[in-house]
Design a binder for these strands. Structure first.
Length: 210
DNA sequence: GCCAACGTTGGC
DNA sequence: GCCAACGTTGGC
C-alpha cells in the first residue's frame, strides 16, 4: 500500500482555496448505500485523533517505499506536490478522509528501506477526496467494491516542505524512550499514522542534531 | 455474532 | 525467510 507512482491518474490538484471561510464540513451523507465507517469514531480506539480544537494543526506520518516514491521524488514533482493514492487499509483511509486537514504537517517516512527512516516534512494541501485509482480497472489498485457514489478509498495531496538535513532512522526512534508510544511503533503496518506534537518536536530536534 | 483461517505490511 | 499484528473472510 505504499504509494507507488505507477499510474497516470490525475496529477495533484493545484487548486488552492483562498477563501477564509471555514472549509465545508463533510455533510453527513445520507445512507444512500453504505458508506464506509465515518465520523464520529469510537472513543478509546482512534477517536481522539479525529478531534481537534479550532484552528489546531495536527501531525501525521505517511509511509512510502523509498524505492517506489522517495522524498526526493516528491521534491522533483510538479509543485513538489503529489496525491497519496493506493492506501487500501480502512484505518489509514479514515485518517486520509476524516483526519488530515489542510495545513497539517506530516513526516515523510521511507519504509522497506535501508535504513527505514523519516526523510523530511510535507504538508497537507488538499483534504481527503476519492482515490481515482480504485475506479480504474486497469490500475494496480483497482477495487471493484469502490464506486463513485460511495467511494471506499480516499487520498490527500501533500507538498514537500523540507528535507531533513539528517534522516531520523527507525532505530533511533525506537531507542528514544520519549517516543515509545508512537503509533509508528505500535502499529507498524499502517501507511498513515498520527503523531503527537511532542513526538513531532523530538524528531525534528533529532533531525537537526549532528 | 463468533472465531478460525488466511492475507498483508513491514521490521528484522 | 520468519514473525507479529492486525484486517478480512467465511463457515457455522
Amino acid at each position: 500500500m505504499p504509494v507507488k507512482k505507477t499510474s497516470p491518474t490525475k496529477a495533484a490538484s493545484k487548486k488552492v482555496v483562498t477563501t477564509k471561510v471555514a472549509a465545508k464540513k463533510v455533510a453527513p451523507k445520507k445512507a444512500a448505500k453504505k458508506a464506509p465507517q465515518s465520523l464520529p469514531y469510537e472513543e478509546g480506539k482512534w477517536g481522539e485523533w479525529f478531534v481537534r480544537d479550532k484552528g489546531e494543526r495536527r501531525y501525521w506520518l505517511v509511509k512510502s517505499e523509498a524505492e517506489s516514491f522517495s522524498f526526493d521524488d516528491l521534491l522533483a514533482s510538479k509543485n513538489k506536490t503529489t496525491y497519496w493514492d493506493g492506501v487500501r487499509n480502512s484505518a489509514a483511509r479514515n485518517f486520509l478522509r476524516d483526519g488530515m486537514k489542510k495545513g497539517d504537517l506530516a513526516f515523510f517516512y521511507h519504509s522497506m528501506a535501508d535504513p527505514s527512516a523519516v526523510a523530511g516534512i510535507c504538508e497537507v494541501v488538499r483534504e481527503g477526496y476519492p482515490d481515482e485509482s480504485a475506479f480504474d480497472k486497469s490500475h494496480e489498485y483497482y477495487d471493484a467494491e469502490s464506486v463513485r457514489e460511495t467511494p471506499t478509498w480516499f487520498m490527500v495531496d501533500v507538498r514537500a516542505v523540507e528535507k531533513f538535513k539528517r534522516e531520523v532512522t527507525l532505530t533511533e526512534i525506537k531507542a528514544n524512550p520519549a517516543l515509545a508510544e508512537m503509533k509508528l511503533l505500535k502499529i507498524s503496518r499502517l501507511a498513515v499514522v498520527p503523531v503527537r506534537k511532542s513526538e513531532w518536536d523530538i524528531i525534528i530536534k533529532m533531525s537537526e542534531k549532528k
